[in-house]
Nucleic acid binder design. Structure first.
Lengths: 142, 142
DNA sequence: CAGTCTAATGAAAATGATTCTCAATGTCAA
DNA sequence: TTGACATTGAGAATCATTTTCATTAGACTG
């Protein structure tokens, strides 16, 4: 993962710096769905001198390198999640508590490809989000 | 459509004003996937005195009334599309030219419900977006 | 090692979509 | 008519993200 990133940088004539390494490691240490600001705060604890500009810049680099993928849910800001995961997964989002569950379903995936092909599209990425109320919130409600 | 909106306003003790009506009509006159700014520009042509604040406010009202639904694609800003359409549809988005194609697929819909149920979710809404390159862009490319 | 070239950094300012504030205006009901 | 609010438009404010810019650090050359 980190190697892929380093390779990308080298290929582009860019450098692997301590800051970039720390930010990348911090990012990979997360479960996913992390906003740039969250990364920034975590990084701050270990290296308070690192500015948010560098964090944002590095997140963008990670995304360009293909090791992070940008995902914008409905809320104000963009989240990153580790790419290159073997499983393609989608999201179930509770509109009540904000909890996010990942799932995958091969049948849906293959239907998506079929539909795209029918419209002459070559799909490079996709995003499926189901919004609803999770069981916990539903029982808590009444 | 407009009646539904009017009903919502009345129920909330709010008023149907000329501005709101024009904005609503303009919105309904569009195919969908319109940003608040686009609506604003269109409205401006007919009534230059209307400010963007009013446009934004009215779009939010339309959304609360359930006649418009907010959809944020990856780009910087939020788009609205007419709700209450009989067909549930999803989007194919060309990352090259930005063209958006709507599609619907009942099998995918029902699979979504199945998956959600398995996780104890009651789905209220969903969003499926396939990103790729459309046939036009693909042939133009080489 | 010294010198040079360029990338990288952090702080602060800039941006751009959206929201809020506020004074002025409109509308309804009593 | 009057009072009570809702509404409006203009501009200021917000908030995540980007850009600018002066400074620092790295890597390479001789």
């Amino acid at each position: 993962m980190l190697d892929t990133f380093e390779g990308y940088l080298r290929r582009k004539g860019l450098r692997m710096t301590p800051q970039r390494e720390l930010i990348a490691r911090t990012f990979f240490g997360n479960k996913g769905h992390v906003s740039a600001e969250e990364i920034y705060k975590q990084v701050q604890k270990q290296a308070p001198r690192i500015g948010f500009a560098t964090t944002y810049r590095t997140m963008k680099l990670l995304s360009e390198a293909g090791v992070a993928s940008l995902r914008s849910f409905g809320d104000g800001f963009s989240r990153y999640e580790p790419a290159l995961r073997t499983d393609h997964h989608d999201h179930l989002i509770c509109t009540q508590c904000g909890h996010i569950i990942e799932f995958e379903d091969d049948r849906i995936e293959s239907l998506q490809k079929t539909v795209a092909r029918k419209h002459g599209f070559r799909v490079t990425d996709h995003k499926l989000e189901l919004y609803g109320i999770c069981s916990k919130c539903r029982t808590r409600k009444r």
